[in-house]
């Protein structure tokens, strides 16, 4: 039959073994974990480092910033032993802390949107695939419609609309409402890919004889979905959501860059690019760190998604 060491392994265990052998995948996973750790431990980092993201060090200590141009006095954006990533021009805030808290904000929003979109994608995709017929037809058209929207444009257009649902335009919008609105907009336009993918998977799984075997023993539709279908959808869900998260994080950054996302003084990854674009002629360093971090983040996530996909061997998935 099979080699002794593989006996009794579940498909999931086999996948895990293959994944561990994929060096690029493991490195990518560690990088991704590092970003999550940074986001999660931001207050601890702040405490150890002794600075926060809000204090305008440059204004409090005039020797740090050039009084005329507003750029840091020291070269390289003011990098030194005290301000590891330099200080922000004009306001003189600490760049490292801004980046750490910015990552925290963006990841939180991206993660919330990913969780909501994944759940919605699963519910709608499985419902369309399993129920078929009319339900499938209408859900399919809804997915087509939403997919045909130019996403970035609609993110920008919808943000004020959604915000206006919660607060009247004259009043100041509280930060948590902006964040909620961002999550809602990303969610609204983010679940369709997964739903469509799962619908196709369910359509093909539904024809498999083990589903009929379950029905012939009297299994309820709910049990069939839970016990027979969902365990076989784990991989596409995992792969798709690892691709979804960086997509949402960059979309959130894009919105904040355009000024419709998170606003001052809340630190935000994307808004650092907007600031950076403002300053780059005089101080390229301010753009450098958030930029490199974003590139590393997106590349790591995509490599991770590829590795997860590779780890599913056709032998165990059929």
């Amino acid at each position: 039959m099979v080699a002794g060491e593989l006996v009794g392994r579940s498909p999931r265990q086999l996948m895990w073994r293959r994944f561990r052998r994929d060096r690029a995948g493991v490195v990518a996973a560690l990088v991704v974990l590092f970003f999550f750790a940074v986001a999660l431990l931001a207050p601890v980092i702040s405490w150890l480092y002794g600075k926060d993201a809000y204090t305008t060090y440059g204004l409090d200590r005039p020797e740090l910033l050039d009084p005329v141009s507003g750029y840091p006095m020291k070269p390289n954006g003011g990098i030194d032993g005290e301000f590891w990533f330099g200080i922000e021009p004009k306001l003189g805030r600490d760049v490292l802390m801004q980046l750490v808290y910015g990552i925290r904000t963006s990841l939180l929003i991206g993660l919330a949107a990913t969780v909501l979109s994944t759940i919605t994608g699963i519910v709608i995709g499985v419902a369309a695939g399993y129920l078929g017929g009319r339900t499938d037809y209408f859900l399919g058209r809804l997915i087509d419609l939403l997919l045909s929207f130019p996403q970035q444009l609609f993110f920008v257009a919808f943000m004020p609309v959604v915000t206006a649902l919660f607060v009247s335009p004259e009043k100041e919008t509280p930060t948590y409402l902006r964040v909620t609105a961002l999550v809602l907009v990303l969610w609204l336009l983010g679940w369709m890919q997964l739903a469509r993918l799962l619908r196709g998977q369910v359509l093909s799984l539904r024809e498999r004889e083990f589903i009929e075997a379950a029905r012939v023993t009297g299994a309820s539709p709910w049990r069939i979905i839970r016990r027979e279908l969902l365990p076989n959808l784990g991989t596409p869900i995992l792969v798709q959501s690892t691709l979804m998260l960086p997509m949402f994080v960059t979309a959130e950054a894009g919105l904040s860059f355009l000024g419709v996302g998170v606003v001052e003084p809340t630190p935000d990854w994307g808004r650092m690019f907007a600031k950076g674009a403002e300053f780059y002629e005089g101080d390229i360093t301010y753009m450098f760190f958030p930029g490199v971090a974003m590139v590393v983040f997106v590349v790591a996530f995509n490599l991770l998604g590829d590795s997860v996909r590779d780890a599913m061997d056709p032998k165990t998935t059929r």
Binding site: R208, F210, A213, V216, G218, P231
Partner: peptide, 23 residues
């Protein structure tokens, strides 16, 4: 059909698709 389900069972043609790979 519930009471009858246990009395009529089925064996399928394709031994590969008739067993759930995740169970």
């Amino acid at each position: 059909l519930a009471p009858i389900r246990s009395e009529i069972q089925m064996i399928f043609q394709d031994p590969y698709s008739s067993l759930n790979p995740r169970q």
